[in-house]
Amino acid sequence: MIPQAFDYSAPQSLEEALGLLASGDRKILAGGMSLIPMMKLRLAAPAEVVDLGRIAGLDGITEAGGFVHIGAMATHHTVETSPAVRASCPLLAETASHIGDVQVRNMGTLGGSIAHADPAADYPAALLALEAEIRVVSAHSDRTVNAADFFLDAFTTALEPGEIVLEVRLPVEQSSEGYGYEKVAHPASGFAVVGVAVRITREHGRIIMARIGVTGMGPHAFRARAAERLLEEGAAPERAAAVVGEGEEANSDLYASADYRRHLARIHARRALAVALSRAS
């Protein structure tokens, strides 16, 4: 219940923060929803914590140039309720509403969640389906990583030492698109045993675009590209859903074995597709 002692700084500007993060054993504190419990259990014991909570302007949500830009420090609650996100990226808003509980959503942040890369986190599924771009910066770099290249392994991302997530950019969903997020929540933790986020576009009754992001099933979230392709080739959703997770490693724990997780991913892919199809115009 009691973390180890650490040095603390709360930079007032991004430059200051990036300067601090350029060296040393420093851990970023965003919403703290993953970091603080780990510190309390002493599974994490950083020498210094850099709190990004005092930097103005890191939590903004704007829409420009066909993209919604969401600041890394935007809370899940903000994402869930933002009119811009709800209008332009409803899949992300819906996914945010499934995270943890209201208290967690009030504190937890988009950037913190994706940088932590918990294999059972909700956001990665949606970011993959939305083909999000993640802007990461350090004291001497500023680059953009596609969501598909960002989640590398359990708790491992494409972030280099000294880099932080600055914002997430999402292409505005067409209003004709259908979307859906179907999740099996662990009864204790609320994390995704499996979560499947889906976007589709239909034309003349045919699916011409399908994106499927899967979280919880494996060590990291992934795109179910084979299933997407089948859908775009005209396969029935059941047939496409049946190949979700093929070739992907699956996690196994007390609550759900690898086989069951893979099975759930397929069932929930089919269900998410059905929801998405019902919403597509």
Binding site: L41, P187, A188, S189, L254
Partner: peptide, 16 residues
């Protein structure tokens, strides 16, 4: 004990 915290040991919650 592998169900050593409330994140693993599932108590009934309101929505369940």
């Amino acid at each position: 004990l592998i169900t050593g915290e409330l994140t693993d040991y599932a108590l009934p919650k309101a929505h369940l």
